[in-house]
Design a protein around this nucleic acid. Structure first.
Lengths: 250, 250
DNA sequence: GCTCATTTGTTCGTATGTATC
DNA sequence: TGATACATACGAACAAATGAG
């Protein structure tokens, strides 16, 4: 009677479909970090045997997660956990164009300073942490053909990003922040929100951008989310839009 | 099963899967307007019989179009063509919030003027029409609690929107432009692009918004697309962001 | 360059459940 | 209640891509 020895069996319990329960189960493995971005998940056959469901049901569960962007499949190889990279285009913060049919410019990043700061309003509340929890503050400049176009200040919860300040700072130049965070902490960026306004730059921003305080800039507040809409970064950025404008696509 | 006798409709022609061909076929019916937004498409059974494919293949084709947002299904009723409305949240141009956790404000629309104008650069090129084709120009003001916050100028190709100027102008107050266009011309909005910058308002915009020319505003250029990424509207808008900021979500 | 085991992709079809009107 | 339409679950058979040997 190997029936008693069978692992977590997905029995037929009407209201919630079997494929949906399997789907959520795999999703939890991803979110909890047991399945890291880029790693391969069990094959269809293995899932069929582990959970005692049919191949069709396994396919449906997996394909749903593929459609939702959590997994991708390669015929002949297997099924893998999606990292942020596959959604990159829609998640890039600064996409600068001269016009709709102009070409997109590549920005260079220069980290200025990374330090620990106390929590403050509204960052702590937006990040969903207590106001007495400390934060990392990361200041950066984004350069377009050598001249500064974006000045950005990011706040990250210290409890999520332990020892972030021991991270070699030139790594922040080589890759986007979200890529570094995904690699080091296994937190892919799933979605983000922005509040955009036109304003004059703060003194600090004007200095960093090398412009007078009388030039209007885009002031962008941003919140980045990982799995389950958990916020992990709050950012404030000042963007110079004299030559190129910020491009957004839906 | 008896595989020697094939009902030759969508025959087995390897490189392109059958479900994909069926999917494209239905999509073309939608795009050409033969299937209007909101109308019901043939049932699974009818598709099975019309095209001589299995129910599983039909399901796959239809579900793909559902995932892509072109169709929606109601169990027991049928499968229907999606209008713009179902994607509304992500396609709303002006979403104004005080802060990330503030509540979204509702804007009132006031049409100012609708007239025919000659084509011009860059509108004609962006709309994919010849420069000598005339355009409709629609100027509107968006009000927040009675005071103007957005001044917007839209350009629409006259060949796509015949007799738009005979449309009762108070209809533009009752519903968003895209809703009126979908209803009258059967063109749902599928995606859009924006270029955002910070600037001082033009004289015209400053007057319409009732602000001095020294107040920075968001200058937003927008292109709206219908099926197959066909552009149908080019818009320029000036948005006052003193109190509330433009909200974007990805 | 070829073969083979593995893995996903496609197509077929049946049976039954559930929602709608 | 019955007829209709979509949803779930099952699974077989074969095709196509991958990577190792």
């Amino acid at each position: 009677m190997n029936r008693s020895r069978r692992p977590a069996r997905l029995t037929h319990h009407p209201p919630i479909p079997v494929y949906y329960r399997l789907q959520e189960l795999v999703l939890k493995e991803i979110e909890s970090g047991k399945l890291q971005p880029g790693s391969m998940i069990p094959t269809e056959r293995q899932l069929v045997e582990s959970y005692g469901v049919s191949i069709g049901t396994v396919k449906k569960a997996i394909l749903n997660l593929v459609h939702q962007g959590f997994l991708y499949r390669i015929q002949g190889k297997g099924t893998f956990v999606t990292g942020t990279t596959l959604r990159r285009e829609s998640l890039r913060y600064y996409r600068l164009l001269e016009s709709f049919d102009g070409i997109e410019s590549n920005l260079a990043v220069k980290p200025l300073q990374l330090k620990r700061v106390p929590g403050f309003h509204p960052a702590s509340r937006l990040l969903g942490i207590r106001a007495d929890q400390p934060l990392f503050e990361l200041k950066r400049i984004f350069l377009l053909e050598g001249s500064p176009v974006v000045y950005s200040i990011s706040y990250l919860p210290q409890n999520l990003f332990k020892r972030l300040d021991e991270y070699p700072s030139d790594e922040f130049e080589k890759k986007p922040l979200y890529a570094a965070i995904e690699e080091k902490y296994g937190l892919p960026t799933i979605s983000n929100r922005e509040l955009i306004s036109a304003a004059f730059p703060s003194r600090e921003a004007a200095e960093a951008l090398g412009i007078p305080k009388t030039v209007p800039v885009l002031y962008m507040e941003m919140l980045a989310f990982t799995y389950r809409k958990r916020p992990y970064e709050y950012r404030r950025a000042y963007c110079l839009t004299a030559e190129r404008k910020v491009f957004r696509e839906y």
